[in-house]
Design a protein around this nucleic acid. Structure first.
Lengths: 339, 339
DNA sequence: ACTCTCTGCCGAACCGGTTCGACGGCTCTA
DNA sequence: TAGAGCCGTCGAACCGGTTCGGCAGAGAGT
């Protein structure tokens, strides 16, 4: 292994001079700087990450805690992961991926051992067991997903309540008066997936405010079951003219259900979902949707995290809870209800 | 930060004794060991990963290089990542996730700086630019995906040639004499996705051997296009009685296509795919398939990698290329062709 | 010519672990 | 009772960087 000592010797300077020449933290003559750089190239030197971490107390690594649950739609999680990973790399950080079932313990492990400079938690639940570990950790953290108690944490999430209201209002303005909302499975809610009931409750409230009938149900997360459910719902509520989907699996299943029933959107039924544009492209979903923007949330979380990591004064600033306003991507699947 | 010096002081011993008490690498009296352990608990000591890495030259981290391409079906990749991650954790290793577009450079970065003890490459192409970097690196590596030149590398992959033959033979034995094979998009092949033509060529060869007509086409990786393609194919080849899918998006799209045409498998058409059981469950695919076993491949790659990392003699052993035999998961979507 | 300042480099300490060699004290044996 | 051997512990060196304080020499000012 080639060390900075080898570089220094080759350049005929001391180790400290070589270090300063490379970091630029002190003035070094152009000539020496050149000799050091030449030696680096010639010897193929790269600084040892462990040694640097020890000396500087910075690892340039960010922990990414992903939680996978049987009853959630895994592909959606992937987009958050990629968003975080790409954003981190742009700022010079690598990603330590942790997928253990026991997230709290894993979090303690990587923070206590100083493997990471900071941490991003994905899929944060209402009462997430990882949060107490995070609060006790010396490194800053950022959440993607809104927990019940945000104190001392930077939180980023879609504003699901506004999303619920937006969905209802959008349909209401078009003239719809009876709607169906398909949420994620009830298991997700029971486990603390608060975003599900946040959207649902806000939608129900807004509906009653507007005098709209809203049938809210929990859908399955797997294909045959959720397809059957959609069929049942359309049978049970023939008067409903609009469908709201807060459930990726339902959105993916809907095209074939509509096709089978000889229906098309928006002529026979107006449809609006809540998923990412990337998701829509992968499955070619033709439905207008509230953009869930996983890459944007991941990027925001990383930016804030890196700010806290790198600036001592930023560490002491008040924590932020940013709920991004839902944006409606119009794919022309909503219109006035059929007369 | 609490160091091993703090622990030693609290236990009334020297730093080295504390270290030996914790590692067990030398005999330490039960009493002292107890005092050290008590101090660890009381002070909440965890060894600093950077310092340990510096001293031992081991990081207990494995690099995972994932490549995402626009025209591939991302959800499939996720399963490989999780397989690798879970297997690594079971053996005590953490995962450094690298998703950069320039995989070769990223690989050089993490190996040169000694951030990782070894590396797993996913989605390896026929002539993968990362391989030369890997061969030059001091750490061992393992591939998931079979490149053109395996010399000096441990390689794990599904035996796609045998998979192609198995698909054809399975259909042949049931009495089918005209089949359609839908592969991944041609872009994937052009980029070096050798598994696509490995399966396809083997299938074509086996078909001609058996006297079976096989129409092989490249399919799209997105939903509407691939759905249309499937429809076109069924129109163009009305005599075909069996469908072979080496394309996840096609498999996901097929149920609604069949439904729309009023067909069902296996009564009207026998169908066999190539994807993982996990994928089948997520999308509730009712088709028999060649199990692509991403978790098993990931686990094998990690096991071999860790063996090389931890045992000096294993480093010098000849490299292995393991192509796992395809296993057919029977979901009753194949039968004798309709008469 | 003398001091003062500034530039550019060096030596040494430090980060927090691990590991090697040595050493004191004890038991066992001759 | 002396010598050998073992057990348990300690001190010091080392891993490969970074950083602080100091110092030599050149140039400027009076």
């Amino acid at each position: 292994m080639v060390t900075i000592g080898d570089v220094a010797r080759a350049a005929g300077v001391s180790r400290s001079t070589a270090s300063y020449a490379l970091s630029g933290k002190r003035t070094i003559s152009a000539e020496v700087r050149q000799r050091v750089n030449d030696a680096v190239v010639e010897l193929g030197y790269t600084a040892n990450a462990g040694a640097r971490a020890l000396a500087t107390s910075k690892t340039m690594v960010i922990g990414l805690l992903a939680q996978f649950h049987e009853d959630e739609f895994a592909p959606a999680m992937l987009q958050y992961m990629l968003g975080v990973s790409d954003a981190a790399r742009e700022l010079g950080y690598d990603i330590l991926l942790v997928t253990e079932a026991d997230g709290a313990r894993a979090l303690g492990r990587i923070t206590d051992s100083r493997m990471v400079d900071g941490v991003v938690l994905l899929n944060v639940a209402e009462d997430d067991p990882r949060l107490s570990t995070l609060r006790a950790a010396p490194q800053p953290g950022a959440l993607v997903g809104l927990p019940g108690n945000c104190s001392g944490l930077d939180v980023f999430d879609l504003d699901f309540e506004e999303a619920g209201r937006t969905m209802v209002d959008h349909m209401y303005r078009l003239g719809h008066r009876e709607l169906i909302l398909v949420s994620q499975p009830e298991h997700v809610v029971e486990r603390g997936g608060a975003y599900v009931w946040r959207l649902q409750n806000a939608a129900l409230e807004q509906a009653s405010l507007r005098g709209v009938r809203l049938h809210a149900v929990f859908g399955d997360s797997k294909q045959p079951a959720v397809g059957r459910l959609l069929n049942d719902l359309l049978d049970t509520h023939p008067e409903a003219t609009g469908l709201l989907l807060n459930n990726e699996a339902a959105a993916a299943a809907l095209p074939s259900v509509l096709h089978a029933r000889g229906l098309s959107a928006p002529a026979d039924l107006s449809v609006i979902g809540r998923y990412s544009d990337e998701f829509a492209r992968t499955f070619s979903l033709p439905f207008s949707s509230i953009e869930s923007a996983p890459d944007r949330l991941g990027r925001m979380a990383i930016r804030q995290l890196v700010r806290r990591i790198e600036s001592p004064e930023a560490r002491k600033q008040p924590h932020v809870v940013r709920l991004v306003s839902p944006e409606l991507v119009d794919r022309r699947s909503t219109a006035a209800p059929p007369t």
